[in-house]
Design a protein around this nucleic acid. Structure first.
Length: 135
RNA sequence: AAAGCAAGCCGGCCCAUCGUGCCAUUUAGGUGGUAAGGAAAGUCCGGGCAGCAUAGAGCAGCGUACUUCUUAACGGGAAGGUUCGGGCGUUUUGCGUUCGGGCAGAUAGUGCCACAGAAAUAUACCGCUCUUAUGGUUUCCAUAGGAGUAAGGGUGAAAAGGUGAGGUAAGAGCUCACCGGUCCGGUAGUGAUAUCGGGCGUCCAGGUAAACCUUACGCGCUGAAAGACCAAAUAGGUUCUGCAUGGAGUUGCUCGCUCCUUUUGUAGAAUGGGUAGGUUGAUAGAGCUGUCUAGUGAUAGGCAGUCGAGAUAAAUGGUGGGACUUGAUGCUCGUCAUCAAUGACAGAACCCGGCUUACAGGCUUGCAUUUUUU
RNA sequence: CGGGGCGUAGCACAGUCCGGUUAGUGUACCUGGUUUGGGACCAGGGGGUCGCAGGUUCGAAUCCUGCCGCCCCGA
């Protein structure tokens, strides 16, 4: 399942972050990058997960209409789906990731994708550093 | 044909490809099917469903308010009544028609009615009329007082029915006619009411109940985070068993034995509650489509066909191409090319019936206007 | 999903329950005075679709209805 998911650019239920505990832990102890308009929070989870897990959030305060929030979440999830191989191979550690949209306007898909690629590259670098430390 | 008003309906297409939820199938790859709305929205009403409460009735509280009907129910809807306003027709101030807004009770009681005004629920400020006294220029006028008066003036949103005639010192439903009001009776209607006849001038007399209130009717409370079920890890509860231990008795002492509303520790087993988490509730229903019957209609009933999302940190998106609409630009002015808007409002969260609000564009019907053709 | 509250001058608030005088207070702003000048102080002044739209009423910031915006609470 995990391998096929990685090669086929899928984004299935297993790759979504859920559960109150997981999310509270991520927001309490996770590190973060910010690149307008996205805030990326992450926390490495070596042991108990089989793949990276993602959570997307668009604040209700910024977008009152449910249509706008759904559209942005879909665009972000799509951008992650297409570009998630930038995080590298399927070796541990895996991450819990939260993407929070912080702009006031609805940006187009191409704009969001560019920023997300940049963020994923940064996260990859962070992962490599951690590996070096271990070695 | 054009623009306008009203009502109703539709409200986003096609192909390829990469992905998402659910269902089916399959040897685990995969394949097939299916996937938001008319408002899914606001959460303003009403139900279903679930738990708790509950003998019955009343009080309190909340809601509704012309009539009849409709419905599971409603503050929704239908038909009717009445009144006000607009349009049209007739005709002349009535009737008809159409569109829209209202609708229990103000003689059951209480409260309030600022400012202005003499007076705001009761009144004599100015005025009008008669009269007494005094004075004068003795027809008449002035001053002071008494009586009558609600016609006129002025104030105000509002001043004890309107118009006309008679009447009078001046006036007044004081009297009369008409209109309006109210009460009683007849007739028509299920009824709101309508209409006819008669009585009432003590016609008892303002507004406000979206002030308290009265009357009639309705409502138990909570809300899917309801409720039901399964249940890891950790800690702890209860019971049983083993071992160790404390106290009392037996005894001179120890062991042993017996007892303790069984002290404490430890090991094992069983068991209930219950958290994370999961399953269910939860998608075939007051369903949809067609047709027939009943009814003015809302709606009801029969028959036939049909299954159209079921997520839960929450499923519909990305890319490329083509139609279509709109806008801009270009010019060899064509129903051509290029570019842009990827085209309104807006995303199911237990389910229904309504209401309210948002909505680009298109289509249909009706109404009246203008131009062209016959 | 359910419940509650708020919206009044540039800003922070009264007034709303129980309708009626010019919608008031502080601060900010403007003008003048005071001072060598500034601050503080004193005097005067301007500034309001009372969130929007309907309705009830003679009269609405206030009562009723429907919208809009903001904030808070409940797992």
């Amino acid at each position: 399942m995990v391998d096929s998911g990685r090669f086929r650019l899928s984004f299935s239920k297993e790759e979504r972050l859920k559960g109150k505990k997981n999310i509270e832990e991520l927001f309490k102890h996770g590190s973060s990058f910010y690149l307008h308009p996205l805030l990326l929070k992450y926390r490495s989870k070596a042991a108990d997960v089989q793949c990276n897990q993602l959570l997307v959030s668009v604040p209700k305060k910024k977008f009152k209409r449910a249509v706008d929030r759904n559209l942005l979440k879909r665009r972000i999830k799509e951008a992650y789906r297409v570009n998630k191989n930038l995080l590298g191979d399927d070796t541990a550690p895996f991450f819990h990731i939260a993407l929070i949209y912080l702009d006031q306007k609805v940006l187009t898909y191409s704009e969001i994708e560019l920023k997300l690629i940049e963020l994923l590259k940064r996260l990859k670098n962070q992962k490599n550093k951690e590996d070096e430390k271990k070695n």
